[in-house]
Design a binder for these strands. Structure first.
Length: 571
RNA sequence: CGGGGCGUAGCGCAGCCUGGUAGCGCACCUGCUUUGGGAGCAGGGUGUCGGAGGUUCAAAUCCUCUCGCCCCGACCA
């Protein structure tokens, strides 16, 4: 395609709105433009990348035996009420009413819609297993959309849903998807890792997230430095400490700690360490407020707490609640003397003796506090985030921490949706059984953005060949007859062989073309200049390495085909 | 939802404090020259200063409300 006829509005300067590399480069390369917060238009170059990713996904899903269909964006509230998610999904669900005041939503995911279809159409075990997928625009009214395509309110997602006759078959379906995902992200040129994950609002029994490793990732993952264990920190299990306290209990003392609210302030004032302090966090769940005790240097894990409490909504108590329950301002809450509040404690607290806690009185803490003697803990549990250096739950090695971008998530759903919606079939004995489900998502735009996070330099994007918007960027450096003619001939030759070529036929200076080409990041640049032509050569430059091959025009096609073969071959 | 910030030409920004002619760079249009890493000269301003209301002789500037966007926080005890 010719640059002069394409809408590729590249930006010379960094747009003010963009912070992360991928967001900035997508805007600068003229791939996307914002329409509203978290809502974008895909311009031709951006769309080509989206389509490349989609096609890789499509090929691998089909290869894995899944079949494509397309569900509507809008769906009626009734379906969502059947599973309870109309209320459960909360503010993230985009809701609307039709002219008859009937409730609808814009699909954030499609378990309800697909399950409704399957319960109507599948009656016999002979029709299973079944795996249907779609590539469709999704809507989630995110608290805080950000980073361009990374976290949008409208985004393109591939979602697949498997239906099996039993758990055993469901596991096979799950494994097929897991393997397909591995192939997909490998083909997209990404460095990634599958990690154990929390199932969140989707629910189900277990799940894995596919994380692209990147500093800018919004997720924190931990992995064993020896074993194969890897998990999202939301889920990563922390083993209870094996050591038991040996210190002799000291008498409890109340000490004044004016203006010392934070762990840092209190430990500094009392000349102790965070390891000898216990934080008391008050959390508001729908029907109760609980106190959660964690060691001063640990972080509470709200996902684990939600699971323990069996709730989906949880928030840290505000100053009013803290004052009402503890009788003290924020910063002085403690477990001693707390009434009518269930006290939960992280395992680490069990191994502590003679620690510091808040005094439930402004400007006061207790020192040499001990559980059981000074206050009762209703339950000890794993309630903190794993962190670097913790022993790996798999038994071998210690944990390390990395940041990741969640590009895919596979779930074993079990019968959560089939049960709620009555998706049943008859087994060979004529018994009615619930379909066992799985669901599998990939963020298409996010995958493209993640690729940029991993593949760029100071000048711009460096596309992995399989998802590059074009294979070759043809750069004639002058408007001379020889150069124009050579460019035209090469263009025809290449596209006739199926090579995807972006031909910069603009009357721009060489520098402008080079800079735009580096910015857009097409993997192979073909430079045609008067000087080169005089010597009978054109240049083939690799965007990634900067390596330049000078060769006669009639050898170019062969060379390009060899390079493409090398980069596009599917193992 | 809380805190902070921003909204002035297509983009990036200055002007606002201390009210009085709306500016700079890039981009864009015309002409000439130029053409291997974001050209030079000459000419051209393309703007409801996010919106509404108010104060004032006079508002981009001060006040009130409102909308939009960005960042941080929601790990704090």
């Amino acid at each position: 395609m010719r640059t002069s006829q394409l809408l590729i509005p590249t930006l010379r300067e960094d747009p003010g709105e963009a912070e992360t590399v991928s967001h900035r480069l997508m805007l600068r390369a003229g791939m996307i433009r914002k329409v509203a917060a978290g809502v974008y238009t895909y311009l031709p170059v951006g769309l080509r990348v989206i389509r490349k990713v989609e096609n890789i996904i499509r090929e691998e899903m089909n290869r894995a035996g899944a079949q494509e269909l397309l569900m509507p964006i809008a769906s009626p509230a009734e379906l969502w009420r059947e599973t309870g998610r109309w209320d459960f999904y909360g503010k993230e669900l985009f809701r609307l009413k039709d002219r008859h005041e009937r409730d609808f939503c814009l699909g954030p995911t499609h378990e309800e819609v697909i399950t409704d279809l399957i319960r109507r159409e599948v009656r016999s075990y002979r029709q299973l297993p079944l795996n249907c997928y779609q590539i469709q625009t999704k809507f989630r009214d995110e608290i805080r959309p950000r980073f361009g395509l990374m976290r949008g309110r409208e985004f393109i997602m591939k979602d697949a849903y498997s239906f099996d006759k039993d758990e055993e078959d469901a596991k096979l379906s799950y494994q097929k998807m897991y393997d397909a995902y591995t192939r997909i992200f490998t083909r997209c040129g990404l460095t990634f890792r599958a990690v154990e994950a929390d199932t969140g609002i989707i629910g189900g029994t277990s799940s894995h997230e596919f994380m692209v490793l990147a500093e800018t990732g919004e997720e924190t993952i931990v992995y064993s430095d020896e074993g194969s264990y890897a998990a999202n920190v939301e889920r990563a299990e922390v083993r209870p400490p094996t050591d038991t306290p040996t210190e002799a209990p000291q008498p409890l003392r109340k000490v004044p700690t004016p203006d010392a609210r934070t762990v840092e302030e209190v430990t500094a004032l009392l000349k102790t360490t965070p390891q000898r302090l216990v934080k008391t966090l008050l959390y508001k769940a729908p029907h109760e407020t609980v106190a959660v005790l964690v060691r001063g240097d640990h972080e509470a894990n709200e996902v684990k707490l939600k699971k323990l409490l069996g709730v989906t909504e949880l928030e840290l108590a505000g100053p009013e609640t803290v004052a009402a329950i503890t009788g003290a301002p924020v910063g002085f809450a403690g477990p001693i003397g707390l009434r009518q509040t269930r006290i939960l404690a992280d395992h680490a607290v069990k191994a502590m003796r003679n620690f510091v806690v808040g005094g439930n009185e402004g400007g006061t803490h207790y020192v040499d506090a001990n559980w059981d003697r000074d206050f009762q803990v209703a339950q000890f549990a794993d309630l903190r985030n794993a962190r670097a250096g913790d022993p790996s739950p798999c038994g071998g090695g210690r944990l390390r921490v990395a940041r990741g971008i969640e590009v895919g998530h596979v779930f074993m759903l079990g019968t959560k949706y089939s049960k709620a919606m009555g998706a049943t079939f008859l087994d060979p004995q004529g018994q009615e059984r619930l379909a066992v489900m799985g669901c599998y998502g990939i963020g298409v735009g996010r995958t493209g953005a993640a690729a940029i996070e991993q593949h760029h330099d100071a000048k711009g994007i460096i596309w992995p060949v399989p998802i590059a918007p074009f294979h070759v960027h043809l750069l004639p450096l002058s408007q001379s007859a020889q150069v124009s003619e050579a460019a035209g001939l090469l263009y025809e030759l290449l596209i006739r062989s199926g090579v995807e070529v972006l031909w910069d036929d603009r009357n721009e200076r060489a520098g402008v073309k080079f800079n735009d080409a580096d910015l857009i990041g097409v993997p192979f640049q073909v430079v045609i200049g008067d000087k080169g032509l005089a010597q009978g050569i054109v240049e083939l430059k690799q965007r990634r390495t900067g390596e330049v091959t000078r060769l006669p025009p009639d050898k170019l096609l062969e060379q390009v085909k060899a390079l493409l073969l090398q980069h596009l071959t599917v193992s």
